[in-house]
Each structure stands twice: as C-alpha cells, then as structure tokens.
Design a protein around this nucleic acid. Structure first.
Lengths: 214, 214, 214, 214
DNA sequence: CATGAATGAGCTTTCATTCAT
DNA sequence: AATGAATGAAAGCTCATTCAT
C-alpha cells in the first residue's frame, strides 16, 4: 500500500529471469512439474502469466532452465576443491561430506534431485543432461578420491570402487530428498550435519567393533 | 447358463481391482501422478475409463490405493523375519540387505518410494501414512538390529544408532529410485546385488585398511 | 423446455460429426477461420467445446474437414453431367450455368471459395488440395466443353480456350463470393439466376450488335 | 542543430504512417486480419509495436485505414478517364480493361478485394464503406459505358445492363483474388494481360462463330 | 517521438468425471 | 458390470494494448 511505486508494474528486465527461476524452482519442488500452474509461478515471482513467456518459451523450457541453472555452478565447485588438494583421501571425503549440508542449505539446489527423479520419465532430454553433467561428473569425483585412497594404502585394496561410490553418495542424496518430501510431515527435522558425520564415521570405520584382544 | 455367466462376471469383478492397480502403478511410476491420464491406465488395464470409477472413487483414491496395496505386504514380511531370528546382528543385516534386490525385482514395490517422494507435497495424507507405516516401522526395524548388535558387542558401543539407520537404508533406497528414474537412460543397468554386497561390506568393515603393524 | 429429454446430453455419435461440420461451416463463413471461436461452433452445433475434440483433432483439422466435405460431392456431380452428354457445347454451357444457382442455394458449398481464398496463405496444404481437386478439375471441365465447341464449329476457331475458361467461371465465382460477403449489406440481393442468364447470353453472343446491313 | 534534428524527426513523422500502412497491407493480404499480429506489421515496417499506436488507435483502425487509403486514389482515376472521353463504348471498355493489369501491378490495391471479402462479416462498417465507395461507383462507371454503347447502337439494345456490369467486372476481380490467394501455389502465374484481352474479345464478340453462309 | 516490458483477457486444448445406454 | 459419448473446469499460451522510460 505504501509501496515504492503506484505503477501497475516496473521494468526490471535484468532481474526478472532470476526471480522467475527462483519462484519456479520453489513451485516445482513443492508440487512437481505437472501439478505446478504457471499462475502460481507468476504470482510467486510477482508478475503475470504473460510475463513468463517474455523470458521462457514454454513451461517445459522454464523447467529445464530451472534445473540447468541450479546445476551449472554447483558441480564445478566440488570438482575444484578436490582437484587442488593433496590431502589424504579420508580428509578429502570428510571435507566433501562436511561441506554438503551447508551447500544444500545455502543454495536452492537441494530440490533438484527430487525434480529430476520424478520427471525423468517425462523429460528424457533432461534426464540425459543430468546423467552427463551431474551423475557422471559426481561419481567420477568420488571414484577419484576412493582410488587415490586405495593407491595410497589408506583404503582397503580390494575395494569395489564403482559400487562404493554409490554408497558414499546415497546418504547425501537421501538427505536432500528427505528435506523436500517427507520432512515437513515428520516429528522433527533431520540433522544433516550429524547424519553426515555418522555417515563418514561408518564409511571410514564400519559398524564392527575392533577385535577386542588384538 | 445363468450360473456360468454369473461366475464369469464374478471372476472379472474379483480380478479387476488388482489389474487396475497394477496398470496404475506402472503408469504412475513412469510419468508421475499428474502426468498420468486415466485413459492410459484404463488402456493398460484393458478396460475403459468409466470402469475405473466402478472400483475407485477418483484418481486420487486410485493413487492412494496403489501405494497402500504395495506397502501393506512388504514391510510386515521383513518385520517377521527379524522378530523370529536369534542370529547375530551382522547376519541379520546381511540377510535383510541380500534379500532386497530380489524383493524389489519380484514385487512392483520398487516404484513406490519415487512416487511418494514426488507427490508428498500434493498428498499430505499419503505422506503421513507412508511416514507411519513404512518409515517409522522400517527405521525401527533397522534400529532394533543395530541396537542388538551394540548390546551384544558386535558393533561399536558409541554408534549413533538413529543416524546410522539412514546410512543403512540410503543405498537400498537409492537403488530403487535409480531403477525407476535415470537407469533407463544410463549406459548400463545398476547391479543391485553387487551394490548391496559392497554396501554390507562397507557397513561392517568400513573403507579403511586395517592398521598393518598392530 | 418441453424437449424430448431432460438429460444433459444424448449420445448421438453418428449425427454429431455432420452437425459439427455444418455449424463450423456457418461460423467460418461468417467470420473466417481465425475469428471463429470454438465456443461459437460448439454452441451452434448444440454441444460443448470438449465434444468437438472427440471428432476433430484441432481447429485446423476441423477447418480442413469442412472444406473437404463440401467439395467432395460437388465437383464430381458436374463432371458426371458433362461426360454423359452428347449435346452441343452451347447447350452444355447453358445447362452448367443454369444449374449453378440452384446448386449453390441447395448445398452449403457457396461459402467455400471465400474461405479458401481468405485462408490460402495460412493453409498451404489446403490451398494445394483445392487447386488439385477443384480448380484443376473445374477448369478442365469447362475447357473440355469449349474445345468441343470449337471442334464442332460452334465456337470461333481462334478461341483462347485456356483464358476463356476463367471468363466463363469468374461470374459464377463472383456470385458465390458476393453472397457470403457484401450481399448482406447491399440494398437488395443479387439475382443469381438472372445474372447467369445474362452471362450465358454475353458469352454466346457478346455485347456487340449484329452488323445491320449484312 | 535543433533545426536539423527537428527536421529529421518531422520527416520520420510524416513518412511513418505510410510505411506502416504499406507493411500492414502486406501482412493483412498474406494472412488476413485476425491472423496478422501487430508484431509482424511492426517488424515489417521497421518499428516497434508501441509505435503503431502513435499513429493508429487500434488494430481495427489500422485495418480500415489500409483499405481506405488504397481505395481513395484508384476509383477516382478511372472515373476521370471515362468522364472526359468521347470515344466509342467499345474503346472505352478496352482501355479500362487493358489498364487494369498495370494498375494492379503498380499499386498494392490488388489485395484489397480479398481483404474486404474475407472480413466483411467482421467489419460491417467497412463493408458498407466499400459498397458505397467502390462497388456503387465502380458499377455505375461500367453501367455508364454500357448504356452509352446501347444508346449509340454499338451494343445490343436488349442488353441487361445491370447484370452485364458484373460480367464485365468479374474476370478482373477474379484476377486480383487469384493473385493473392492460390497463385503462389499454382504451377505458373496467371497472365493478367492475356486474360483481359480474351475477356474483352469475348465481351465484344461472344463465343459463337459467325453464321457462315449469311 | 519511440521503445519494449508488462499486462490480462481470451483463446485452444486437455482430461477427470458423469451418466445414458 | 461395463461402456464411451459428453461434459466443463482448468490449464497453457497468445497477443492487442498500455505505459514507464
């Protein structure tokens, strides 16, 4: 009411796309692609439906843009960290896993896996893009660390690296999925940091108690 | 002739719901709830759209029935196995994890987590149902095993059981999600059995090599 | 109000397509393709918008069906008449032209030329269809008569048949176009029969008075 | 410098309307009124959509202006020619018809009949304007020539002038309509000059061969 | 004078649901 | 019990029009 302007709208060409993508991500994350109405996205972005079409050719394109924009920055960042480090594999893993909770909270990337999972069947092109740009690069990253650990004698020589990668990733992914699906209905939120700590601990040492009389 | 005819009708009547649920699960798993058309479900079930409404009040009810039907049998089975066993925790875990791949392949339950994850935002009631009937019972089951392992000295006493549960479950869940989302686009399928074996191995022993000169 | 049924609708699968085409032709003829709303077509056909899509895949398909259905029967009929006749060319022409006004009034074909003319730019496929099925066959029909007239010595030997064809057709076409465009706004309707008679008279004898002292 | 700038502005201001009308005519002729987007008109005129509204109040007004501008000059010109001539009716007709092809090619008036025909149903006002300013004056012009011909004994005394007028006009109109509708899809273009020559020939002499032994 | 970002009404199209058969 | 023609409420998308710049 006491707003900065009484105009029906303002020209904000540069800010619009980002605002729309943010609004769209939120809507898609909440309801999925098909159940999201462009009216909702528009309302959340503070524009009208027609405006969406100034920046995105269709609902599908908007969806793909949402996924792409969130992905682009994030994966490269993790690769960077690993590439420039000469630390032990265990420390690398620890830093990677310890970073994750903060990263998820800070960026809005946490909802992407849920979206891609749910819509892979409807967006083959997107599925392939994600497979190439995220899954392949992400698993290669982890596999590199594990391999380094084996080579250096840190990790067990017989390690099945290819599968172990998924075991490393799975709890992290789980956290992201949980947060954007069932967590709102659960008694209490998941403590991502604690879970990552436990995960790291299990990864490095396993469940088993050390043989007592050694 | 009335008898024959009646019998045949009855047989159809008894089988229809199951056939419809099976068709619906397949459709929902492929495309998600919103993107699935009842025409498709009906076609896949070999009936017409109108017939669906003889057995299910609405698309939503059909969806919930799909989820419920798949869940009911599965979780109880696992609970049964654990309850009647006096074996070590490690063996129990092993049997649980080793069973999973077969269980997923045999039943059509594998698509349920993806569906629930994706539609939790649109079906709060379903989310709560799943949280109660699957998540709570499933985590309790694993937690019980872990607790037994700690009590018996098999597992490390300081184990953070509550979080470890998720670490145990995550790779299994991951396998199910993968299968119904990105796997069709990947170069080659995931070997669920091998992944479970590696997971178990890591769980019990961890990544780290035993200290050599101890 | 005292209708035959209080039902919201009746199943009339066989009659529907024809009714819809008739309604659509009327609407398209009045307003053109783009300016016609499917709501109007549906209302005029006594159905709802959704019903249109049970029978026609899209507005474009509906439009093409309208044109095709009207054309199919009409051109063959004229060809038939000419083929089986051994009368003089002049008599043939006379019968063809004399028939036209009745034909136009009876069928709803009169609006088609206006539609095709107006939408040729937007429907290349339709334009080509019309060119092949109507223009080519129609001109061939007239050309055949003219040629016969020349061969038999009825018509002048130097006749430029190819162009004369258009001179024969043009007034007929004009009548159809006029009726569905400006006539509603004119002081009085065009007397198609009288115009055809004059046209025939001019065609056969020309404007010029016979040389008086021959 | 203010002078130069003002002058340049003014020059644009003076030229803009004409440029826009030319662009609009081309677009309307190609696609019809409803299917023409103002974006297209603007692009073809080398301005932006908003600029159109500086010169024309709405799409409808633009359309009417297009029609009016093309018509105004053309009809008066023909009237002029006839009024100041004392030649025979046959010669007048010949000059009128022979002029037409060039006139159509030179101006962009050729597309107007198609537009008016197609949109008469949507623009009653325009239809009446066209009826008054073009049809009435045009038919009066031809009727005058025919009447003169009859009075002078050139043409047959029993001539049904009122209808003959349409027979004179129809092939000319046909040429214009053809050019802007089906011609682009036909094997080869229509030779307007040859067609007019044949038309004149038929008009004056008719199809029939002179009685040989008279 | 000119722009073009933004609007919003209105269109085509889809599809869950109903109900006469 | 089963059908499938018909419905009608959305939804995606377009585009004439407006107006801050």
């Amino acid at each position: 009411m006491a707003a900065t302007s009484t105009a029906r709208w303002r020209r904000r060409k540069d800010e619009r796309p980002g605002e729309i993508l943010t609004a769209a991500l939120a809507c898609f994350a909440e309801r999925g692609f098909a159940a999201t109405r462009l009216d909702d996205v528009a309302a959340r972005a503070g524009v009208t439906k027609g405006t969406l079409y100034l920046y995105f050719a269709s609902k599908e394109e908007l969806f793909k843009s949402v996924v792409r924009q969130e992905i682009v920055a994030s994966i490269a960042q993790a690769e960077e960290m690993v590439a420039h480090s000469e630390e032990s594999a265990a420390v690398l893993l620890e830093r990677l896993l310890a970073n994750w909770p903060g990263l998820i909270a800070a960026s809005r990337i946490g909802a992407i896996p849920k979206l891609v999972l749910g819509e892979a069947g409807n967006f083959p092109e997107l599925a392939r893009f994600y497979l190439d740009e995220v899954v392949r690069r992400g698993t290669a990253l982890i596999a590199g660390i594990l391999r380094r650990g084996v080579e250096r004698g840190e990790f067990r020589p017989a390690l099945d690296i290819e599968r172990a990668v998924f075991c490393v990733i799975a709890p992290v992914l789980f956290t992201m999925l949980w947060r954007h699906s069932l967590e709102p209905y659960a008694d209490r939120p998941l403590d991502a940091r604690a879970l990552c700590a436990t995960h790291l601990d299990l990864l490095l040492h396993g469940l088993s108690a050390p043989e007592p009389r050694e």
